[in-house]
Write a protein that binds this DNA or RNA. Structure first.
Length: 647
RNA sequence: GCCGUUGUAGCUCAGGGGUAGAGCACUUCCUUGGUAAGGAAGAGGUCAGGGGUUCAAAUCCCCUCAACGGCUCCA
């Protein structure tokens, strides 16, 4: 007969062991190996992450979590947030605490510092305090308490934020955690003790609204990161430094792609010749792909009468936060800078009666739009006030929605693949079921649209995440999200199903039965916006664009001005083969010309001197690789054409 | 929009109550050099803008603008 006090623990490899009831994850680790026990940060018990020291009372699947597990790191960082709080309480008595979660990389704690204030200069002091407390190797002690006790504790402490949090908690589910002299309301879990934290760095301080609501008080959010080893912190900091070097704002300036001018206005990028040419190349790439996919180009003006946006619903939704209407000499006449292309495209649809045979009708336009983004939101090229969408609207019959949607997914994936965007996430953005007033349209239409998206994504085997409340006000969408060099997420490609605008604009087509029907609209933009896409492209490639996009593909470097004429000859010959570049006619030594070409990321350098001139050749040097030997001009042109195609 | 930080030459930055500095870039001259920076000279700034304190402000204070880091927002 089985001993009542024993429980069965199943480990991830499928093996099962018997332990006395009440054993902890840490003790299980000890029974396996000392080394493992030293590294256990938490235990996953039946799928839930627990303190490693928490007693397990029933048979369970247990996975011991270490620094190598994302959940282990999350636990480590959440515990570090408590350590930060402890340090803050020691240094700034009376500080009140909001919440302090772990992040993908690190953690933060939101605090109300009262009279105090904290700046970057205070970081070393706080970090030192954290490490001092860590060296005390205090245990994180879990203590379940009743709601009344919790209220009493935090009333005594005078922390109204914790009281507000307790208010939303259910009696019986409340726990406190204490390490050293610091006690926090927390559901856990935590690492066994502070001693695991060997390196700490506060990264920045920022304001953040309490509970993320704009109408609430702004607290001070202190961001930090910790590691079990100093070296890991050093490596992390090096990585951040490298990421900053890829920042499109920095590279955009260095590579002379774009600039901003206070005089032109905030968030209004000025494209410099190299950037403009890069952008044009991307546009023509997509134009070609869209022509193949059955899109028809249209062009519409940058403004439209206010009535257009009253009809579309955009005026009602965004009017007061937008660029305000442009007035004319005629009283009452008002125009808006267009924030969207869709209303214009709807009017194009209406310009002629449509038959079911005409559908799907795919109208495409690189349409420049203007949105008055909040000043604090502007960010390089990723968030601007004037930008160009690679927009198109597909007008189709209801039964065509899914197929069209799938075809758009294919187009987006083709674009991403061609440009080497392998790290994206596909996000299905649905409406917030608890806040339906934010949206327009009938429930029935929303449900149809949402299921069309979900099915289409499934059909293409996309690995999707679903976000509630992220839909556009007129419909759900499938967004392709990518990260910038510093890990921030941005939406690039987007596909949106819309039943509302066709109704608002009273779009119709005649069916085979000679009855009138309402088409469905799909909004889509594979790049999203040229500005944002190029920003991410710059960061992805660190400014080293694929050969076909590179602003300058070759630099012709004469050894001295004696070979200037030959260099020009080579240049014109290659220009005839559609190869872009320039001749470096400066009075500099070859070493210098090479260095400058390398730094400005020109893919090929063609060095010409006495030898080359005599033989009608060029010496090829590839950026980052070095000397490739000599070729005849025509040989190089052929070689280059092959390279462009591979890229 | 909110909280915080920053704003000095085209760029990167030093300085800091007594009327501005470096490197790179730029211009001119010398140099004609073979695979990642040749040399010299020169030019360039109302120290973001406005107001205040002071005998004196780039420096201290206030306001505005912009950038940066977050928060909120994102058709």
């Amino acid at each position: 007969m089985k001993d009542q006090s024993n429980i069965k623990i199943t480990l991830p490899d499928g093996s099962t062991r018997e332990y006395p009831q009440g054993i902890s994850g840490l003790e299980i680790a000890q029974s396996i190996s000392e080394g493992l026990a030293r590294n256990v940060l938490a235990a996953q018990v039946n799928g839930e992450v627990w303190d490693a020291t928490r007693a397990i009372d029933t048979d369970a699947d247990v996975k011991l979590l270490t620094w190598n597990d994302p959940e282990g790191q999350a636990t480590f960082w959440h515990s570090s947030a408590h350590l930060l709080a402890e340090a803050l309480e020691a240094l700034y008595p009376g500080v009140k605490f909001g919440t302090g979660p772990s992040l993908e990389k690190g953690f933060y704690y939101d605090v109300d510092l009262g009279e105090h204030s904290i700046s970057q200069e205070d970081f070393p002091k706080i970090e030192a305090k954290m490490l001092e407390l860590a060296r005390q190797k205090n245990a994180y002690v879990r203590q379940p308490i009743s709601k009344a006790e919790a209220i009493a504790f935090f009333t005594e402490k005078g922390d109204e934020y914790k009281l507000e949090l307790i208010d939303g908690l259910e009696d019986g589910s409340i726990t406190l955690y204490t390490q050293g002299g610091f006690t926090d309301l927390c559901r856990g879990p935590h690492v066994p003790g502070t001693g695991f934290i060997k390196a700490a760095k506060l990264t920045n301080v920022a304001g953040a609204y309490w509970r993320n609501k704009q109408e609430n008080k702004m607290l001070t959010r202190i961001y930090g990161i910790t590691f079990p080893k100093q070296k890991e912190l050093d490596d992390y900091l090096t990585l951040i430094e490298e990421a900053k070097r890829r920042d499109h704002r920095k590279l955009g300036k260095e590579l002379e792609l774009f600039t901003f001018s206070e005089k032109v206005g905030q968030g209004l990028p000025l494209w410099l010749p190299k950037g403009a040419m890069l952008r044009e190349r991307l546009e023509s790439f997509l134009r070609k792909a869209q022509l193949r996919a059955g899109y028809l180009p249209v062009v519409t003006p940058h403004i439209g009468s206010k009535e257009l946006y009253v009809t579309s619903g955009h005026w009602d939704k965004y009017g007061k936060d937008s660029f305000q209407p442009i007035k004319t000499p005629n009283v009452g006449e008002e125009y808006l800078l267009k924030p969207m292309n869709c209303p214009h495209h709807c009017e194009i649809y209406k310009s002629s009666p449509r038959s079911y045979r005409d559908l799907p009708l795919r109208l495409a336009e690189f349409g420049t739009v203007y949105r008055y983004e909040q000043s604090g939101e502007l960010h390089g090229l990723t968030r601007v006030r004037g930008f160009t969408q690679d927009d198109a609207h597909i007008f189709c019959r209801p039964e065509q929605v899914k197929e069209e949607f799938v075809r758009v997914i294919d187009l987006v994936l083709y674009v991403f693949r061609t440009l080497g965007f392998n790290e994206y996430s596909a996000q299905i953005s649905l409406r917030d079921p608890d806040d339906k007033q934010k949206y327009i349209g009938k429930d029935e239409d929303w449900e149809k649209a949402e299921s069309a998206i979900i099915e289409a994504a499934q059909e293409r085997g996309l690995n999707t995440i679903t976000e509630l409340g992220e839909a556009a006000f007129y419909g759900p969408k499938l967004d392709f999200m990518v990260r910038d060099a510093l890990g921030r997420k941005w939406q690039l490609g987007t596909i949106q199903v819309d039943y509302q605008l066709p109704q608002r604009f009273e779009l119709e087509y005649v069916g085979s039965d000679n009855q009138k029907y309402r088409p469905v609209m799909i909004h889509r933009a594979p790049f999203g916006s040229m500005e944002r896409f190029i920003a991410i492209l710059i960061e992805n490639t660190a400014g080293q664009f694929p050969l076909w996009l590179s602003p300058d593909q070759i630099a012709i470097l004469p050894i001295s001005d004696k070979y200037s004429d030959y260099a020009d000859e080579v240049f014109f010959a290659l220009q005839d083969s559609d190869i872009r570049g320039f001749v470096d006619h400066r009075d500099e030594k070859i070493g210098r010309k090479i260095r400058d070409a390398e730094v400005s990321k020109v893919p090929f350098m063609l060095i010409v001197g006495e030898k080359e001139q005599a033989e009608g050749k060029v010496s090829i040097r590839r950026k980052g690789e070095g000397d490739l030997g000599t070729m005849l001009i025509a040989e190089f042109a052929a070689f280059f054409q092959k390279e462009v195609k591979i890229a």
